[in-house]
Every structure is written in structure tokens, then in C-alpha cells.
Design a protein around this nucleic acid. Sequence first.
DNA 1: GTTAATTTGTCAAGCGATTGCCAAAATGTG
DNA 2: CACATTTTGGCAATCGCTTGACAAATTAAC
Lengths: 359, 359
Amino acid sequence: MTSEDAATQADVLAQPQSRAGRNGRQAATIYDIAKLAGVSPSTVSRALNKPGRINIKTEERIHAAAKQLKYRLNPMARALPTGRTNTLGMLLADITNPVFSTVVRGAQREAAERGFTLIIAESQESGQREVLSAGNVLPSVDGIILVGARMSDEEIKDFAEQKPLVVINRFLPDVETIIPDLDPGIDQALAHLADLGHTSIAFLAGPTNSWMSGARSEALRKHSERRGLTLTEIGPGVPTLDGGRAAFPRVVASGVTAVVAYNDLMAIGLLRAAQEADYLVPGRLSIVGFDDIFGSDFTSPPLTTVRTPLALMGELAVRRILAMVGSRSDGDSPSGASSDLVNLTTELIIRRSSGRAAR
Amino acid sequence: MTSEDAATQADVLAQPQSRAGRNGRQAATIYDIAKLAGVSPSTVSRALNKPGRINIKTEERIHAAAKQLKYRLNPMARALPTGRTNTLGMLLADITNPVFSTVVRGAQREAAERGFTLIIAESQESGQREVLSAGNVLPSVDGIILVGARMSDEEIKDFAEQKPLVVINRFLPDVETIIPDLDPGIDQALAHLADLGHTSIAFLAGPTNSWMSGARSEALRKHSERRGLTLTEIGPGVPTLDGGRAAFPRVVASGVTAVVAYNDLMAIGLLRAAQEADYLVPGRLSIVGFDDIFGSDFTSPPLTTVRTPLALMGELAVRRILAMVGSRSDGDSPSGASSDLVNLTTELIIRRSSGRAAR
DNA sequence: GTTAATTTGTCAAGCGATTGCCAAAATGTG
DNA sequence: CACATTTTGGCAATCGCTTGACAAATTAAC
């Protein structure tokens, strides 16, 4: 056995264990291209990434070879030396909730447009699971978007130190956040309710660990005081149809004529409970939701709700992250990334679940 | 200086390492652990992946070091030598459609449970864009799930040769597919309609490039013939609320007393158009949808629809892919992966958009 | 025609894991 | 106590791509 034979055999052994198993014609690498085009791999890499760095003719030859071999860059392999994965992670509290699907949609489209891939993970409303998931995706993404984070401020900050991170629907000092301006929508809602003669209203709160529920409660309190309305808080409750449903008895007991729910899901749940109890909406009870999710205009009566620019928020989150990622290496765009040309405002959508107050 | 001192000092040295840019204390690697534990990197790798392969005491020491450094495995780095990414790609025709969100939910949960990550991409109902996305995610996933694929059979097969692939809601020979059994639901729907005195019904078709639309049309035709019902097909149309809305005039013109729509979105759109035109549902027109998406029971009247086990299908898709991935290397589970203990059946959910036929 | 400046492409060292092969250490056997 | 086994851990190559440093080739300048 000559040494060449030995090499050959070693070579054979080194082959990735019969990777052509059940399926899998092997993907072409830059080495294959290099061989075909008669250049070195590094030249291929340059031809593909730094147009102009090498001779135009070889560049063309390389591109041709790449096409011929149906070359596809391996993102994992690229990620190793560069540290950039071109992937973003999005953590949702609950995929089931249409609110989140809308945010995902906005984010996904924006990410795709910028050539980024979106990974999604769900925490199922648990802070613990959230920390876990975040940790899991962390190494494989360039940035993380938290939607309705359930973990603690410290935990979030901890992650924010490791990778660019933006939080949707929750405020945190020193962390990029995306929060719509609640004031216009809430003010309109309260004005609308006051116009209809309501003087005593209730807020159907969401989970305690939801920052946004607190914010809505707060804003509601502020504006109702200003308008001289009485505000009762019912809850906390789970932010789902069932959560809204379950609150119905307490709503009735509270004696209010109007309810603003933490979100549309709860509003709709409440609405249905009311209907099942032949409790007229809006005759005896006006209901206002939050977010204007898909389907909130299907109900009967269609839901009056404070619309939140969900898709836009997802989009914006991606843009922010990308700005952070970029400025990390390029040091290019002056850090004024947070300057929003976009205005994240809320507005009241009046439909028919709100009406004149019963007396 | 004893070796313990050395370890301690190594500990100190292992700190910050100044690579911190704008953010980013550097993630610990197995090399860091190795240094801290006083072993070689390969030993660390073994300790972490092949419990029992090394001495229990060193293994413990390594685990302690890993915890101390908050070690997190880098999936990219692992993917390179192993070829396995622990990531699955899911391609949707349209994220906006609640049908798809439900499938995503099922898939995401199952994937998470099995320790896999889900990447999602959207083709926005375009075959071209779909091929592109598929190609893009291909190198970074262990398998691909296509939901409502819009690309050609050949293109799908092409991808199927490169990576494990399963297709939801579309049939293709020689490719793993997940398709619910339409017969029970459709038969029930037709029986229900016939019972109510309808003799002439219409199918509101979806896009031509949707295999599922064809399948539903086909099954409808088969069962209505058997029952002696007249079936008209209206369409094709876009599978959205607007698509359903747009079809209203043609439905009226066709003179049928009942319509089965390609999906709930179209059904709901049609329903709303009818209401706006004061065309009574179900008084003058009965409407049956498909899928039972979120919100289809919110409408008024609530939608009668053929339910599809969407979440289950997503879940199953993940299980299938995982079985394929597994059998590729392990050669473990006998290829009877396709044996479904699960039954993917459809059933009619009777609500109030269907009623006695007008004559 | 010689030297300086510029282009173009190759070398080789990583990135963070995994793994076959082998040597040293520990254990068992007669 | 010498020798055969089994454990345990390290070496080094590899996955596919990027990139700083440098040499060869080409072009420009004098």
C-alpha cells in the first residue's frame, strides 16, 4: 500500500458517513466551484461576496460555474467565521393568539425583504419557558424580538447584553422597545363611552405579568379621571376567550354599564358569555376591546375596539434590530436608529358593541 | 503553583476577553470549558453528548464548568461536522390566512417538544417566490414542510430529493403528503344540505394552483352526483375575504340556494357581501365553509363549516419529517413511518349559516 | 527598459463543534 | 508480579466559508 493509497483510503473514510442516505445528492460547495472554474476557493468566496474585488472575467466564470452546480451558500458555514447568521428570533407568549400572528406577519415580511430569516418560538405564557427558549435560539440568531415578554426585567436585560434585542409591548429602560401610543385610542374610547352616557366603566385586566395590561389600565385610569368617569378594575384574568367568558359574572356584579377589556379575545369571550345569558350588548352592557384582531368585526354585534398597529410594530421591530446589528459592525448609521418616522398610534374603531348607557 | 492554582488562574484569564462590541460578552465555547476543567475540548464534547463515555467524576467537573460559564452550544458550529441542524423549515402560501397560523401552531409545538426549531417563510401565493424561499432555507434545515404549496410537482420533487420534505394539503406520488380525508365531512355537508331541501348547490372555487381547491371540488362532485344534487362551480377566485365577497354577484346569478366555499375566508366574505346586499343567510342562501378557522363561529349567523384538523396536521408533519430525518442516519425505525395511528378526518360543524332551502 | 504602483489571486489560519484512532492509565487475571 | 483487558482522555482532521497577509502578474510612470 503506497502512501497515496493510504491517503485515498483516509479520504474515503473521512467522507461524511454515507451522507447520501435515504435522500441527499450532496450540495455543492465553493470548493467544487473552485475546481470547476480553475481557481482557489478563496477566490470563489470573493467573487460571490465582494463584486469588483477580482477580475471581471474570472468573476463571470465563477458565477457560471456556481449556477451550473446549483450552488447554494451554506449559512451555517458562513455564520461560523463571521458570527452573523442572518437570522432573527421572535419569541411569542402564545402563538394561538391572533394578535401575535399579526405581529409575526409584519416581522416576517420585513425580515424576508431584508434577506433575513425568522425563527419563531413560543413561551406559552410562561416566564420560565421563555427564558429557556430565548437561551436556545440565542446562539443561532443575530437578534431577538420579544413580543409580550413574560420574563423579568433583569432576565431581559441579561439577554439584551448578549445580542441586539427589542421588546414589543413592554417598557424597559435601556432596552429598545416598541410600544404604541395608547393615549389617542383610549381617549377616543372614553370620549365615545362618555358621549353615550356611561359614567361608570370597568377594565377587564389581563395577566399580572403582562406589562401591557398594566399600561392599558394605567392609561385608562388617567383618562377616566380627567373625564370624571368611575373606573373599576376586574381581574386579573387569562387573556383568552375563556378568560373573558369567565369574567362575565363579575362584570354583572360590578354593575357597570361599559367594559373595556384588556384585549379583543377577552372582549369577545365576554360578549359571548353575555349573549348566552341573554344579557344585551350593547343594550345593557357596552364592550370595547383592544387590538382589532382578525375576526373582531365578525362578531355580532361587531366589536368596538382600540386598534393597535400590530403588523407595523412587527415590521418596525425588525428594522430596529437590523439597525442595531448593522451599527454593531459597520459603525455606519449614527445611533439615532430609534428615531421613528413611523407613528405608532392607536385609534378607536367604532362598531356596534358599544351603545347608549342603560340606566 | 499547584495545578489547582493554574485552574483558578485560567478561570480569571477566561474572563471578559474584550471582544465586547456595542453589546456582546462573548459566548463560552467548549474550549473555555476545557481550560477551566483542565481537560481537552474533545473530552468536553463527549461529556456533554455521550454520557457514560468518560469518567463520571470528570464528567461532573465539566458540567459544573459549563454551568459556571453559562455555556450554550452553538448550533451552527455543531451543524457543520454533523450535517444536522435541528431546525425545520415551514413554507406557507400566506401567513395572513388563519388556516396557516393554526398549522404553524401545531407544528411549532411539536417541533419544540422534540427539541427542534422552526423557521417560517412565506411565498405570498406565488410559486416563484416559493421556490426561491425553499432554496434559501434549504441549507439550514433538516427538513421542509410545505403548506399549500404553489410550486410545480417537479419543483417539489426536486427539493424532496435534497432534504426530507412533507407536503400538507396536496397530493404527489412518491412524496410524503398529509391530506385529511375529505369524504366524511363533505358527505355530511351534502347530506345536511339535502336534508334541508337544497337540490342545486355551488362550489366557490379557490385559486387554480391550489391542489386542495381541486380536491374539494372533485369530492364535492363525486358526492353530489351520488346524491343526485346539481353542482355548479363558480370561480376560480382568490382564497380571501375579498375573494368571497367578489363572488357574490355570480352566486346570485347562478340561482343556487346553497354554496360551499373553498375555505372559511371566502365563505365569510360571501356571507358579508350577502348581508350588505340584504340577501338573507340562510333564508335565501345557505353557506358552508371549509376548515373551521378561528373566528368562524363569531360571524352572524355563525358559519357552518367542514372542519379540518389543522393543528394536528402541522403536528403530524413534524413527526413525519423527524421520522425521515431519523431513519436517514439511525436506520432505526423501520421505514413504516407513514403508518398513521392518527386519523386525519373531516367533520361537518353545523352552525347557523345553513338552513332550509328557499324555493 | 527599469522601477514603482496597482490588480488579481493564493495561502493558511481560523470559527466551534464532532469523531476515528490511538496511547496512557486503571483494572482484572493467573 | 507480569500480562491481558478495559477505561479514559487527547490528537488531529474535518465540516464550508471568510479574510488578512502576501506573492505573482499586470499596468503605469519615468
